[in-house]
C-alpha cells in the first residue's frame, strides 16, 4: 500500500476507526502515515467530545402541535378540493358530454343539411305560379324533406300552386307525404 492510499483509507475510517492488517503493517513501517493516523485519532477523540444536539421535550411538543395544525389545514384543503373537484367535475363532465353529443349530432345533420332552411323559402317565393319547373320543384321538395324531416312536406303545401301540387301527386314519389 502506498501512503496516499493509506491516508485516504484512514480518512474514510475516521469516526469508525479500525485498521486492517495491511494498513497496520504500513503504519508500523511508515512514520509519516503513523503521525497522520495519530492526528486522526486525536481529531476523532475531539470531535466525539462535541455534544449531540438533542431536541428538548418542550420543543418537540411545540413542533408536534404546529405539525398537527399544518397537517390538519392540508387535509382540510385537500378534502375541500376533493369535494370541489367532485362537484364541479360532474358538472364539467356533463357539459363536455353535451358538447360532444351536440357536435356529433351537428356533424351528422350536416350530411343532410347542406343548405340552410331559409334558402328553400327564398327559392319558393321565386317560383312563377304559372310555370311548372319539374327539376326545380323536385330540388325544393328534396331540400325541404332533408332540412325539416319527412313530415315537413306539409309545410310546403301552402306554398305550392294547385298545378304544382297536382304535379307532385302524380310525378314524384315523395309527393305521397303530402296526401
Amino acid at each position: 500500500m502506498d501512503c496516499q492510499q493509506v491516508k485516504r483509507s484512514l480518512s474514510e475510517k475516521i469516526g469508525a476507526l479500525g485498521l486492517n492488517l495491511s494498513e497496520k503493517e504500513h503504519i508500523h513501517i511508515c512514520a509519516d502515515c503513523r503521525i497522520y493516523y495519530e492526528r486522526l485519532m486525536e481529531l476523532d477523540k475531539y470531535l466525539k467530545c462535541g455534544t449531540t444536539p438533542i431536541i428538548k421535550e418542550t420543543e418537540f411538543a411545540t413542533i408536534q402541535k404546529k405539525l398537527d395544525e399544518k397537517i390538519g389545514r392540508y387535509q382540510n384543503r385537500a378534502l375541500y378540493f376533493y369535494h370541489l373537484s367532485v362537484r364541479y367535475g360532474i358538472s364539467l363532465t356533463a357539459v363536455i358530454l353535451l358538447l360532444i353529443v351536440s357536435l356529433i349530432g351537428k356533424s351528422g345533420k350536416d350530411i343532410y343539411q347542406s343548405k340552410p332552411a331559409d334558402h328553400y323559402d327564398t327559392l319558393l317565393t321565386l317560383i312563377d305560379e304559372e310555370t311548372i319547373d319539374e327539376q326545380y320543384i323536385e330540388a325544393v321538395v328534396n331540400g325541404y324533406v332533408q332540412t325539416y324531416g319527412i313530415n315537413s312536406g306539409e309545410m310546403l303545401i301552402g306554398d305550392l300552386t294547385p298545378g304544382e301540387l297536382e304535379y307532385l301527386k302524380s310525378e314524384i314519389k315523395a309527393g305521397d307525404i303530402f296526401l
Partner: peptide
C-alpha cells in the same frame, strides 16, 4: 433529523423550523 439540520444550520430555532418542514 434534528441533529443533521442543527449541525448544518448551526441555529436551534432554524433547525426546529426545518425539522417541522421536513416532517410535513
Amino acid at each position: 433529523m434534528f441533529a443533521l439540520v442543527y449541525r448544518m444550520t448551526g441555529n436551534r430555532d432554524v433547525a426546529l423550523d426545518l425539522l417541522q418542514e421536513t416532517f410535513f
